[in-house]
Each structure stands twice: as structure tokens, then as C-alpha cells.
């Protein structure tokens, strides 16, 4: 116990002295989350449209009533080319829509608006469709749907990087040898690291979660405490994985080389993109990444407001990952020193 405390104490001191690392742990994810929020969280613009056709036609009127400007064909063509408008609809038989076309989401918004307007023209007097959301609502932005995944991703990434590099340093500077030549048990070294880093992982989780929810107004249906719990357990798996992999690296650069192998694939399988359409092997790979389970639990809690019974399995699996990484690390340390 004294050994674990001594390690915890030492790691905390090193953290507090190393201001840049502290900043990397907390300021960097805040900065990136904010940038993502600015890019994806903003309200989407109304598409800029124009209608081409005889202004006396009722259908053209229907469009101009919606504040869509009426242009002649030549103007419309040149404005579309200069990206002043995103699309124009030509009222003739059959109706034809011309899109600028370089940005798929804008295309979709323009088409939707045109269809809505046409629909209103055709269904006048008929019943309006009433739409109900099981989870979320019509104001949910893209940021709300992948924000929880990003939160998990950043925690995982930065904790992985830091724990990997610090354990590696322990080896390259020779301090691990000194520890190995003293009466400390291998498991005590690992537990000391877990508690020292765990402390800062917890601080990071708390700050990032509160920032996302209260400053960036990320959607949250369930309890904040559950979000914190999930993120903290995720960070333990990042911590143990970073330490384990550091034994296979000879220097800091080689830790960085693990990023495309270990981190990037997890991003693809984490639920940032829909996995249902993936081939089976892709879905199977996803099941072997810690981030997948964390993202699943976080989306359950933050978007669907699910109860503990719905996502405890995800957390149990995450803890299982940590345990597996610890055992593997013990095995590699054993080859280094018996006992």
C-alpha cells in the first residue's frame, strides 16, 4: 500500500509540475470540442433557392410566397455558377431542379425545401403530417448526435498518449530498472499508475463533461453522474492500454506510431458513422474496440436517457478490457523480472 501511495504521489507531482502536459490533458480537448461545436453545432442555413418561370403561374407564386426569388433562366444559371444560389427550380413540364451540387448536405436541404414547398401546393387543405420523435427532437443538431462519441474519443486519445509516454519514459530513463531492483511488486507498479493517472483522468472527465453539457449545451437526457462514470471507466481502459503498448515501443515516436493502428480504427467503429451497413467483418472489428462500448453507453445515456439496466453491460465490457490489458501487462513485466 505504501508503494502504491508513493507512486500516486509521485505521478501527481510530476503532473502538476508539467504544465504543458496538464494543458494537453484538459485545454486541448476543450479546444477541439469547441471547434467541432462551432463547425457542426451551428444552426444550418436555409438553402438559397430561386424559381424560374412565368410569375403569374400559381406554382411560381407558391415559391415566391416562401421568400424564394424569381429569376429568369439566364440569371439563374449565372447565379448558380457563381454560388449565389444553391439551386433553382424551373417550372415547366416536367419540373426540373438544378443544383449547384458540390456539397451533398446542401443539396439535400435544397431538395427538401423544394419538395416541402411543392407538397404544400399540392396538399392544400389536406391534413398535415404530424411527426413524433422517440428520442431526440427536431432541433437536435449534428453535434448533439456525435458529441458524446467525441467526448469519449478525446478522453481515450489523450489518456492513452500520456500514460503510454510516461510509462515508456520510466523505461528509457532507467527508473523502471531501479523500481525493478527494489522490493515493489509488479502489480503495485501498475496499480500505482492507475491511481496516479486515474486521479487526473477523473479531473479531466469532470471538466470535459461539464464543459460539453453546460457551455456547449450538449444534449443530455440521462444523469450527468452516469456520463462521468462511463467516461472514467473508458479512461481506465485507455490508461491500461497505453501502459501495455508502451512496452512494445522504444521511444516516443513509436508511441505516436500506435495512433493510426490503435486510435484511428476505433474512431471509425465507434459509432460516429452508422455501422449497420458495414460488412460483417467490419462490425466484428468494432466489437473489439473499447471506444465502441463507451460510445454506445454514452449515446444511450445522453440522447436516449436510458436507465442503468440498459448500458451496464457496456461498462462491464470496458472494465473487462482494462482487466485484460492489466493481465497482459503483468505478463510482459514478468518476462522483465520475476515476481
Amino acid at each position: 500500500m505504501q508503494n502504491i501511495l508513493a507512486l500516486t504521489n509521485r505521478i501527481s507531482r510530476q503532473f502538476i509540475r508539467d504544465k504543458r502536459t496538464l494543458a494537453l490533458l484538459i485545454v486541448a480537448p476543450i479546444l477541439i470540442l469547441t471547434l467541432v461545436w462551432v463547425v457542426f453545432g451551428a444552426k444550418t442555413d436555409e438553402p438559397k433557392l430561386a424559381v424560374v418561370g412565368d410569375s403569374k403561374l400559381p406554382m411560381v407564386k407558391q415559391f415566391t410566397l416562401q421568400d424564394i426569388k424569381s429569376l429568369n433562366l439566364k440569371q439563374a444559371k449565372s447565379e448558380l455558377k457563381n454560388q449565389e444560389i444553391d439551386a433553382y427550380i424551373e417550372i415547366k413540364e416536367p419540373l426540373s431542379v438544378h443544383l449547384e451540387g458540390s456539397d451533398p448536405p446542401t443539396n439535400q436541404r435544397a431538395l427538401k425545401k423544394i419538395q416541402d414547398t411543392l407538397g404544400q401546393a399540392q396538399n392544400q387543405g389536406q391534413q398535415k403530417l404530424s411527426i413524433h420523435y422517440l428520442y431526440g427532437n427536431k432541433d437536435m443538431k449534428m453535434f448533439d448526435s456525435f458529441g458524446p462519441v467525441l467526448l469519449g474519443l478525446f478522453v481515450f486519445f489523450f489518456i492513452f498518449l500520456l500514460s503510454g509516454v510516461s510509462f515508456l519514459r520510466e523505461r528509457t530513463t532507467g527508473t523502471l530498472d531501479r523500481l525493478m531492483a527494489s522490493p515493489i511488486k509488479n502489480i503495485e507498479i501498475i496499480l500505482g499508475y492507475l491511481s496516479g493517472f486515474g486521479l487526473f483522468a477523473m479531473i479531466q472527465s469532470i471538466i470535459l463533461t461539464f464543459y460539453s453539457i453546460y457551455v456547449l449545451q450538449m444534449n443530455i437526457e440521462g444523469s450527468i453522474f452516469y456520463v462521468l462514470l462511463t467516461i472514467f471507466i473508458l479512461s481506465l481502459s485507455a490508461l491500461t492500454l497505453g501502459m501495455l503498448l508502451s512496452t512494445f515501443a522504444r521511444n516516443e515516436l513509436q508511441i505516436v506510431q500506435f495512433i493510426p493502428i490503435v486510435i484511428v480504427p476505433q474512431i471509425f467503429f465507434s459509432g460516429l458513422f452508422k455501422l449497420d451497413n458495414l460488412p460483417l467483418w467490419g462490425q466484428i472489428i468494432g466489437k473489439f474496440t473499447p471506444l465502441y462500448y463507451a460510445a454506445d453507453a454514452l449515446k444511450d445515456i445522453m440522447i436516449r436517457g436510458a436507465q442503468f439496466s440498459d448500458w451496464w453491460g457496456d461498462l462491464a465490457l470496458l472494465l473487462g478490457f482494462s482487466l485484460l490489458f492489466i493481465i497482459l501487462h503483468m505478463v510482459t513485466l514478468r518476462s522483465y523480472r520475476k515476481a
Binding site: 505504501q2 508503494n3 501511495l5 508513493a6 507512486l7 504521489n9 509521485r10 507531482r13 510530476q14 509540475r17 508539467d18 530513463t173 532507467g174 527508473t175 530498472d177 531501479r178 523500481l179 531492483a181 527494489s182 522490493p183 515493489i184
Partner: peptide
């Protein structure tokens, strides 16, 4: 190992810490 004193070729110290803290850490280990 309790009765071993080992000094490696590399200095094997924690650079961010003070000398006192280094001695204190290895002492408690």
C-alpha cells in the same frame, strides 16, 4: 531486493521532481 542498492549507467531520476522528492520516492519504495 530490500537489501540491494542499484545504480545504473543512466541516472534514472525523475527530472520534474526535486532531489528531495526523488530521494523520498525511492526511500518509500
Amino acid at each position: 531486493f530490500r537489501h540491494l542498492g542499484y545504480m545504473a549507467q543512466s541516472d534514472a531520476l525523475y527530472e520534474e521532481l526535486t532531489a528531495y522528492e526523488n530521494l523520498d520516492f525511492f526511500g518509500s519504495i
